[in-house]
Amino acid sequence: MQGRLSTWLIKHGLVHRSLGFDYQGIETLQIKPEDWNSIAVILYVYGYNYLRAQCAYDVAPGGLLASVYHLTRIEYSIDQPEEICIKVFVPRGNPRIPSVFWVWKSADFQERESYDMLGIHYDTHPRLKRILMPESWIGWPLRKDYIAPNFFEIQDAH
């Protein structure tokens, strides 16, 4: 079942895959990494002017990584803004996605967190560096195949 945006994208010849609707009725689309930058600009022009959230997750151990974008179309005199969810899947061997920082500035810290925790590289991001973990940290803590290092902490014996 295709939603309104999926029908519009097909009409304009933009490649994507409809993943259906979530429990709130929000349409979810899958976009290829190489198409994401141009489709993001098109969605912004189409009216999706607010990036509500960006997150990422590990689909399966040794499998794909996913970057998820929740976009909202905010207009004046509308009671219920239109929302869309975009998923971009990348291989864990070379997880590269174009950054949408230049389209939605709110992607700044959110893409940095996804990079820090899962190792997804957001090309053209102006400050892509670790945000939660120390710069010297090795590995990506939220990957399902991550092996935590052995730490021996000195504790006070009071």
Results as ranks from 00 to 15, higher is better:
residue 30 Q to E: 14
residue 46 Y to A: 13
residue 87 K to H: 14
residue 73 R to A: 01
residue 138 I to V: 13
residue 134 P to M: 11
residue 91 P to H: 05
residue 95 P to H: 07
residue 8 W to C: 06
residue 54 Q to N: 14
residue 110 Q to P: 08
residue 27 E to M: 05
residue 49 N to F: 11
residue 11 K to Y: 05
residue 142 L to I: 08
residue 149 P to M: 13
residue 119 G to F: 06
residue 90 V to M: 11
residue 69 Y to N: 06
residue 129 K to G: 10
residue 15 V to H: 06
residue 102 W to Y: 13
residue 82 E to Q: 15
residue 128 L to Q: 05
residue 141 P to N: 08
residue 85 C to G: 11
residue 76 Y to A: 11
residue 50 Y to T: 12
residue 8 W to R: 11
residue 3 G to T: 06
residue 43 L to K: 02
residue 135 E to G: 02
residue 41 V to C: 10
residue 60 A to R: 09
residue 57 Y to P: 02
residue 122 Y to N: 04
residue 61 P to H: 10
residue 64 L to W: 01
residue 74 I to W: 10
residue 43 L to F: 02
residue 12 H to R: 13
residue 24 Q to N: 05
residue 93 G to W: 11
residue 74 I to P: 03
residue 96 R to K: 15
residue 99 S to P: 07
residue 145 D to V: 06
residue 86 I to Q: 10
residue 71 L to E: 00
residue 85 C to P: 10
residue 51 L to M: 10
residue 131 I to M: 11
residue 107 A to Y: 03
residue 128 L to V: 00
residue 15 V to M: 11
residue 108 D to N: 13
residue 31 I to C: 05
residue 40 A to C: 11
residue 35 D to L: 05
residue 42 I to V: 09
residue 16 H to M: 01
residue 70 H to Q: 04
residue 91 P to G: 14
residue 127 R to G: 09
residue 116 D to K: 03
residue 15 V to W: 11
residue 104 W to K: 00
residue 129 K to F: 01
residue 11 K to G: 08
residue 134 P to A: 09
residue 76 Y to H: 10
residue 34 E to H: 14
residue 8 W to N: 07
residue 143 R to V: 04
residue 32 K to E: 15
residue 68 V to G: 01
residue 141 P to T: 15
residue 111 E to H: 12
residue 75 E to Y: 12
residue 88 V to I: 14
residue 48 Y to I: 08
residue 46 Y to T: 05
residue 122 Y to H: 00
residue 9 L to Y: 15
residue 53 A to Q: 04
residue 59 V to C: 03
residue 114 S to I: 03
residue 7 T to C: 05
residue 49 N to T: 12
residue 13 G to M: 09
residue 77 S to K: 15
residue 114 S to K: 07
residue 93 G to I: 06
residue 2 Q to C: 00
residue 109 F to V: 10
residue 95 P to I: 08
residue 7 T to H: 13
residue 125 H to Q: 09
residue 131 I to A: 08
residue 64 L to R: 02
residue 136 S to H: 08
residue 36 W to L: 15
residue 63 G to P: 04
residue 74 I to Q: 09
residue 101 F to E: 04
residue 107 A to V: 08
residue 40 A to M: 04
residue 91 P to Q: 13
residue 26 I to V: 15
residue 110 Q to L: 07
residue 89 F to N: 10
residue 99 S to C: 09
residue 82 E to K: 13
residue 132 L to Y: 15
residue 130 R to V: 03
residue 146 Y to I: 09
residue 105 K to Q: 14
residue 89 F to K: 12
residue 6 S to C: 02
residue 120 I to D: 02
residue 139 G to P: 04
residue 11 K to D: 14
residue 45 V to D: 11
residue 35 D to E: 02
residue 12 H to N: 03
residue 38 S to L: 03
residue 45 V to F: 00
residue 52 R to V: 15
residue 60 A to I: 06
residue 140 W to K: 07
residue 96 R to I: 14
residue 138 I to Q: 13
residue 145 D to K: 00
residue 71 L to N: 00
residue 31 I to Q: 04
residue 119 G to V: 05
residue 10 I to A: 11
residue 76 Y to G: 10
residue 83 E to L: 04
residue 54 Q to C: 13
residue 3 G to H: 06
residue 43 L to S: 03
residue 105 K to N: 10
residue 51 L to Q: 07
residue 71 L to K: 02
residue 79 D to C: 00
residue 4 R to L: 04
residue 147 I to P: 00
residue 70 H to T: 12
residue 145 D to R: 02
residue 135 E to W: 00
residue 136 S to Q: 04
residue 69 Y to L: 07
residue 27 E to F: 07
residue 24 Q to Y: 09
residue 10 I to E: 15
residue 33 P to Q: 05
residue 49 N to Q: 10
residue 91 P to E: 15
residue 108 D to H: 07
